[in-house]
Design a protein around this nucleic acid. Structure first.
Lengths: 331, 331
DNA sequence: CCGGGTCGTGTAATCGAATACACGCACGGC
DNA sequence: GCCGTGCGTGTATTCGATTACACGACCCGG
């Protein structure tokens, strides 16, 4: 590989000049510039990003730690993040935490060691041991989707409260009184918040959720199936299931199919997070849809603002209810 | 951030010694070692990976260029790649080519500039302009899923010929005679190979595919819907649709739902690639399943072998037919 | 005709680690 | 007691860029 020195020699100038030409600095003579560029071309020179980064303390790289790439919700986010980052000339390194705190922590450290210019994390749990390390190294941090209460770091997430209120009204309107909830883990903000918002909504409608109809899964398919099985085995089983995440929803649906329950006649089902295939199920699934693309994009823009020492823009995104057929016919 | 020099000063040794301790080289005295480690601890020293990489010409980083992260097939691959890479102490940088040749080329270059130790590419098309650049820089390359005919680079993919033969027999056995095929692009190996394998199988059963029942999509949802629409609009429409990729299959299903066709009574449907939600459709979709996890893992292992100057292990993976209900009841 | 200001370019230090080479010391054999 | 050997450690170079500073050429005004 040709280095800058080679280019300099061939163009008959110093490396400083080559560097200046390549970085568009304080214009060298047009002819020097041309000579340098010709040499660059002839030698197929490509700058060594490592050397450059070492010198200028910036890698044009963003780190992304997500909880689970197999969760289509996070895959969409990852895609949006990569897309927005590329538009701004950044590359993204990613790590899959697998909903696992230790692995998440390892990854944060690895990415910091790689000198990423900024870090995007979808926290696996409320645990915030890793945050201090990020702060100690002065690396800008933006939290995605799940919030953990730690000063400073902006959080980009979609507020589901309004959509959940609508969902509650929808279900009650259809005559559902016993509503089973498959919630996320208690130690994630999204797990707690969605449940509380939904509970509040139902309470204010006069139909508080029966505590024995609330279960907690782990945002994975298996736990959704188990939860559905358990809920339907109760003495007075629910007439509708609300899964607070797409994978748990899928698991619940799996279980309903396995048990041969007809939807929505025997049991209804609503899922948090929309997916392209949800409308294709029989019946089409009623969902709370999150604006994943906007979330990923907004997160990157916030992070870049932090990196550039600006105030990150305030983003407020809302999830929205999409009524389809899986909770019963519309009135 | 503390540097090696700081550690050296605090421990009262030279940077060379610190380096030796940290890399487990030709054993320094146990007490020097202890002093150094104590200093490392006290200063919370973390080595600068950039400086190290610059010096040793290795970044412990793998590049992954995939065609489309939103395609769950590729998301699974990405996850498997990341998983296997981590096990070997490598980190992965990824780029989303969006089934787009120019973007793929840009990404390959970007990743090379980042001095990845090896490159994993799922080629968007047969275009191989970018390969020469990879070779020119002596970076090991492994092709994933799609092959392009270029000397040297190992290809990890799953052979679907046998599964497609079984599928052909299954369909014919169910009485299907007019079989519509939604194939991938002609300029991808998987597009061509799947179609040819399926054609061959049907021909040898005595029921060659009618040329007017073959369409080509682009591995995206929309094209699957369009193709289904077109096929069903033929004068003599097919009795079953075979989509050669999960997204096109989803699109086809979408179109069938939109048109209100009953599956499998009016039209059957089979899809290449399995997904967790395919069994949950009504009826459950018959598929050709690929071993994505093994593919990702094998690709990384091949690449690491190349990086270490070894001969990459020969991997032979097969897709397999999973008969469910979407093509008609089993005989 | 000379002093000062631009402007283009080169020299050399720097980023933070790895490592070839050299040095000094202890030890053992003759 | 001398010299060779080996081991632990330090010195200095290197990886490939960026950039502060300096220098010389040139131009212009007084």
């Amino acid at each position: 590989m040709a280095t800058m020195k080679d280019v300099a020699r061939r163009a008959g100038v110093s490396t400083a000049t080559v560097s200046r030409v390549l970085n568009g600095h304080s214009a060298p003579t047009p002819e020097t510039r041309a000579r340098v560029l010709a040499a660059v071309d002839a030698l197929e020179y490509r700058p060594n990003v490592l050397a450059r980064s070492l010198r200028v303390h910036s890698t044009q790289t963003l780190g992304l730690v997500i909880s689970d790439l197999l969760n289509p919700f996070f895959a969409e986010i990852a895609r949006a993040v990569e897309d927005e980052a590329r538009k701004h000339g950044y590359v993204v390194i990613f790590g899959n935490a697998d909903e696992n705190v230790e692995q998440q922590e390892r990854y944060v450290r690895t990415l910091l060691d790689r000198r990423v210019d900024g870090l995007l994390v979808c926290p696996a749990t409320d645990d915030d041991g890793w945050v201090s390390e990020v702060n100690a190294r002065n690396v800008p941090l933006v939290l995605l989707d799940r919030r953990i209460d730690v000063g400073g770091a902006p959080v980009v997430h979609a507020d589901g409260a309004a959509a959940l209120r609508e969902l509650a009204a929808h279900l009650v309107g259809l005559g559902h009184r016993r509503i089973g909830v498959i919630s996320g883990p208690e130690d994630t903000s999204t797990g707690r918040e969605r449940l509380h918002a939904f509970n509040d909504a139902l309470r204010s409608l006069g139909y508080p959720v029966a505590p024995d109809l609330v279960t907690h899964g782990d945002f994975r398919r298996r736990s959704g199936a188990d939860a559905a099985s358990w809920l339907l085995g109760r003495p007075e089983p629910p007439t509708v299931l609300v899964a607070m995440d797409n994978l748990m929803g899928l698991g619940a649906l799996e279980e309903l199919r396995r048990l041969g329950r007809r939807i929505p006649d025997e049991v209804g089902l609503a899922i948090y997070d929309d997916q392209p295939w949800f409308p294709l199920f029989e019946p089409a699934i009623t969902v709370v849809a999150q604006p994943t693309e906007e979330m990923g994009g907004a997160a990157v823009r916030s992070l870049l603002a932090l990196i550039n020492g600006e105030e990150p823009e305030e983003v407020h995104l809302d999830a929205r209810l999409v009524v389809r057929a899986s909770c019963g016919e519309r009135l």
